[in-house]
């Protein structure tokens, strides 16, 4: 299994008055090269689950194994290294830095790896060609459309060639045509060997024929509808 969660619990601010139990006893397995959708209302625990799968933080209790590494055993630094080698993120707000060019945004994850500018451009060019945004490479992020921003976010998620792509509400700011286009790109990536996990409550995503599994999340637990 690429992703294995066993009785995972996540408590924010444990032991403090503002303690919040976000996940309770979540067990989940995800096979490689599948497209999984985490479905749930706002505040259900989708983002927390996505953060644990994305190696952002370890669970408070339980066992989480991502691409062969036990998260609870990894110190923070190694968690970061494991994250950048394994996970590509696509965010709801795209999270593209507005003052940087498209090219600079795409290559951001490569900077701390010591990749030379020439190599960075070469890697990014392959992705901009695949995603048809080569003509926008030198544009500032705030000068391009929402659909193009989405593609920039996808290119940035793929720049390190991670095996797992996580997308958090990726179609929230897209119209139905662009949403379908996004799902099509995700499916292409799955066929190319990636594992796709999308957190969404958009029916265009949840009802998409290429989604293999839908995992319902409600009140911090896996919910079978």
């Amino acid at each position: 299994m690429l992703i294995e969660l066993e009785s995972v619990t996540k408590i924010y601010n444990k032991g403090r008055p503002n303690e919040v139990k976000a996940l309770t006893g979540v067990s989940l397995t995800i096979e490689p090269q599948t497209m999984v959708c985490l479905k749930g209302a706002s505040g259900s625990g989708k983002s927390t689950l996505l953060s644990i799968v994305g190696c952002v933080f370890p669970p408070t209790s339980g066992r989480a194994s991502i691409a062969g590494k036990q998260l609870s055993r990894l110190p923070d630094r190694f968690l970061t290294i494991h994250r950048r080698e394994t996970i590509g993120f696509i965010f709801q707000q795209f999270n593209i830095l507005p003052g940087l060019t498209v090219m600079d945004n795409i290559t951001l994850p490569l900077l701390p790896l010591g990749v030379s500018p020439r190599e960075r451009r070469k890697k990014a060019r392959i992705l901009t060609e695949q995603l048809s945004i080569t003509h926008r490479e030198n544009f500032l992020a705030n000068q391009i459309s929402g659909g193009e921003l989405q593609r920039v976010a996808i290119a940035r998620a793929l720049i390190n060639n991670p095996p797992i792509i996580l997308a958090d509400e990726p179609t929230a700011h897209l119209d139905s045509r662009l949403s379908m286009e996004f799902m099509s790109i995700m499916n292409d990536l799955r066929l190319a060997g990636k594992t796709i996990i999308i957190a969404s409550h958009d029916t265009l995503v949840t009802d998409h024929p290429q989604v293999h599994h839908i995992v319902g999340v409600k009140d911090g637990r896996i919910h079978v509808p």
């Binding site: 994305g54 290294i81 999270n95 951001l108 994850p109």
Partner: peptide, 16 residues
Amino acid sequence: RREISILKILGWETTD
């Protein structure tokens, strides 16, 4: 704050 959190989630370490 947003920029730092984006950099960190993209694999930048605190020292970076």
